[in-house]
Amino acid sequence: MDADTGRDNGLKFSRAALVSDTLFGEDGFRLKPRVWTKSTMKLKDESQRVPSTSAKEHLPYFTGHTKHGPFVADLIDYQRLSKMRSTYVGHPEQLVTNARGVEVTEEATGFWKYIHEGMIHPSFLLHATVTGRSSSRDPNAQNFPKRGKGNMKEVVKAFRRVFKAPDGWVILEADLSQIELRILAWMSKDPVMLEIYRNGGDIHSATAAAANGLTLSQFAALPPEEREMLRFQAKAIKISTG
């Protein structure tokens, strides 16, 4: 327990170590990791690699597991909800009573840190990323939840309703829609990629179908959740050139 705030900082599923031990440890579910943390993924000794606990990049691989799939799905929802509460919602500056009975000031968290005169003003950067993409900070306005999956759909919808334009203004949202891959197709003149885009197709779905030995018709006939998962996994497939 924290001596200043009086809060319990013990076993929490927001701790990566606990999640890793539960899912991949010898005393846990013993699932076989597929994605490693960026700092350990290139280590030659696999025993030194640390499994990723990312709800976006790794955990979805196990939602279809016969025995532990439902638990992993609930864990993903929990992690996403925890991130929304801490990163996007938070609380204003407030007085709290610590374990010693003394009132202390707890700083604002989440979006409350960035509200000025009732509005949020992110800073947009044009030259901060290695890839050349634009970015934003304080807060990161390009990383707000969009649609949500599973039980998170209604939560995300409720969150997005907090954004309202001032009178006489509108909120405009734009998506570049695979712009890097489209430029790659144009520059390389790859016939397969060009055909997909010219026909209004989805390159990630096409990749997922090919990687799993399916035709596009067979892929489209899969259950929505399975199709979405295979498409998500296909985004990680790297293109190899000679």
Rank of each mutant, 00 (worst) to 15 (best):
F159D: 06
W112N: 10
N143R: 09
M119N: 13
P122H: 04
A128N: 15
S135A: 11
N140Y: 10
F144N: 06
A165K: 07
P145V: 05
Q142E: 09
E154W: 10
P166Q: 10
V130E: 14
K157E: 12
R161T: 14
E117T: 02
H121N: 10
V156C: 04
A158L: 14
P166D: 05
G148R: 05
P139H: 01
T129C: 10
I120T: 06
T129F: 07
P166T: 11
Y114L: 07
R137H: 02
F159S: 02
I115P: 09
M152V: 08
P122Y: 02
I115A: 06
V162A: 10
K157V: 03
I115G: 07
K149Q: 14
D138P: 00
R147S: 11
G118T: 08
G150I: 01
V162W: 11
F144M: 13
F163M: 08
L126N: 07
P166L: 09
V162G: 05
A141L: 08
S135T: 09
Y114D: 11
S134N: 04
K146L: 12
H121G: 04
G118I: 01
K153P: 00
I120W: 00
K157D: 12
F159C: 02
P139G: 01
A158R: 15
N140H: 06
F159H: 10
Q142R: 04
R160P: 00
H121C: 13
L126T: 07
V162C: 15
K153A: 11
H127L: 02
H121W: 10
D138L: 05
V155R: 04
A141H: 02
R137S: 08
P122F: 12
R161I: 00
S135Y: 05
T131I: 00
A165D: 04
H121V: 07
V162Q: 14
K146V: 03
H116Y: 06
G148C: 02
F124H: 11
P145H: 08
M152R: 07
P166R: 13
R160I: 03
N143V: 01
R160E: 05
G150F: 11
H127Y: 08
F163S: 02
S134F: 11
